[in-house]
Amino acid sequence: MSMPIQQETSGGRFWGGLSLRRKQVVWAWTFLAVPILFYALIRFYPTVEAFYLSTTNWNLFSKPGFVGLANFQRLWADVVFWQVFRNTVLYLAIGTPVSLILAFTIAYHLDRVRFLHGFIRALYFLPFLTTAAAMAWVWRWFYQPVPIGMINDLLSSFGLPQQPFLRSTSQALPSVLAPAIWAGLGFQVVIFLAGLRAIPNTYYEAARIDGVSNLTILRRITIPLLKPTIIFLVVFSSIGFLRIFDQVYNMTSGDPGGPLNATKPLVLMIYQTAFSSFEMGYAAAQTVVLFLVLLAVSFLQLRLLRDR
């Protein structure tokens, strides 16, 4: 009992005048201030700085000079940018649905398997733990022509023609996307499994008593109740595919971004503009565009998938 009294006398009028609840709030904010300050310095300040840089012609070797929206005009007229933009949209538009449908199908069936359940789950999760760069190199070798490429060796042994994969302007993007989907699959499967387990068994029992078919159970019970999980995964994996870099960079390192920019995503273009050509202002403008795209896509998805 003596402690609070002591505090009240030594802590001054302000502190002493606060109720216990208020004090808790003050303490909470004191602790929260650390991450907020950290974020402001490490995240928000550079973000604002990037917006400013996008209006300059800074090239690392000169003082930045204000050029207004010239960088954005250049971007609008840049053929490579539109190709890259198209690639980025393709990564998102193919990657997200394919990976989600795959992950759900696997999780749905894995949920019913008791035998070796943990082992199979671990097998799916393993690629998620692997370094993206290492995995990209392994796949890069899978795609090589005969005699070292596994896939082409296989095709060839069945008498089928070899495929160019990474060296083709049409096949390169799906070839890069495949390992990216595979790598994220384990994580999505585990999240889906957790979501499936969280659905109360009573709903299923009730449905079965009513003699409802499996398909109807899936459509009317499982999927609607999985909605929060699906929203989370859609947003999470969309952001992932929009920011794809490691796989592309490592699988096409000789000619970064694939033949004729066939696989180049926005992030790789930003990297090259900034750290190979040192056009920092132009790179900042591209970053601003990526930021806005990410923002728009995230908002749109949250809106569309929100409960009606």
Partner: peptide, 8 residues
């Protein structure tokens, strides 16, 4: 010769 033969 063939571009991409043996990767590099």
């Amino acid at each position: 010769g063939q571009v991409g033969f043996m990767d590099e």
